[in-house]
């Protein structure tokens, strides 16, 4: 009998039969893994298996390659404080969908799991101020973990470490304004909050999601002949509307 127990985040659930659930989890040591929850649709268990819930999962099967039976105990309902925040739910859905769709099964990403838990904590603590900048940095981290990290350490043309404001869509390396030259129009804008840990600006959030969305689409999903997940596309639209509303509010003062 193969068995493990460890903290996990619920990424995705699908109905399995009448009362069962097929659940995809992100765990620290096992990576993305799935299992069958018997009675997962029951009134008692349904809340446990909501997307984004942090649980302690127990998985057991006779052989490691089998589907396995899952059970779990809730540590934190990350989605509960977000039910009244459209953007908060959008961030949660997008992060969980990207993990479920982009990460290969049964490959451990311990650092990504830690980052995901940190992001979910920030998200559920402040649903009225959705942490878009944290989300964009988390997407950069996801790209890095998948082997497509952006090199934002220095300018690819001049070698300078300051004044970085573009990213090359071909190489993923930062470019300074000075180094951009006549290629400026072909480069992707780089918002400064991606490397200085600030909260960013509304236009910066849109630039950041355009930047990470470009590399997710090209490097991660195009390789599997799949488009960017609908939840991620919907998030980009929501951030655009939210940024527009904030800029309108700012300009009225």
């Amino acid at each position: 009998m193969v068995e493990w127990e460890e903290p996990a985040i619920v990424l995705r659930t699908t109905m399995y039969g009448e009362t069962g659930l097929l659940v995809y989890l992100l765990t620290q040591e096992q990576g993305v893994c799935r299992g069958l929850v018997k009675g997962g649709m029951s009134r008692r268990q349904r809340a446990t298996w909501q997307v984004g819930t942090l649980i302690v999962a127990r998985w057991r099967a006779r052989l490691p390659e089998q589907l396995g039976a899952l059970s779990g105990e809730v540590v934190r309902h990350c989605a509960a404080p977000l039910l009244y925040s459209a953007l908060g739910l959008g961030l949660l859905s997008s992060a969980c969908t990207l993990c479920a769709e982009a990460l290969p099964e049964k490959e451990a990403y311990p650092a990504l799991f830690t980052e995901m838990v940190r992001f979910l904590s920030v998200l559920s603590v402040s649903p009225e101020n959705p942490p878009i900048a944290d989300y964009a940095r988390w997407e950069c981290f996801l790209l890095k973990e998948l082997g497509y990290g952006l090199d934002l350490s220095r300018c690819a043309v001049t070698g300078h470490e300051n004044g970085l404001c573009y990213v090359s869509p071909r190489t993923g390396r930062a470019v300074s304004d000075e180094g951009a030259g006549e290629w400026r129009d072909r480069l992707l804008p780089l918002p400064s909050f991606l490397f200085d840990e600030t909260d960013g600006t509304p236009s910066g959030w849109q630039d950041a999601l355009t930047l990470t969305g470009y590399f997710l689409r090209r490097a991660v999903f195009a390789a599997h002949h799949r488009p960017l997940p609908a939840a991620r596309q919907r998030l980009a639209d929501m951030v655009r509307d939210y940024s527009g509303a904030i800029e309108k509010l700012d300009s009225s003062f």
Binding site: V74, H77, L83, Y84
Partner: peptide, 12 residues
């Protein structure tokens, strides 16, 4: 009550 239900109840 689970903490999710309590959080939703307090918010609403």
């Amino acid at each position: 009550m689970d903490d999710g239900t309590l959080a939703a109840a307090l918010t609403a």
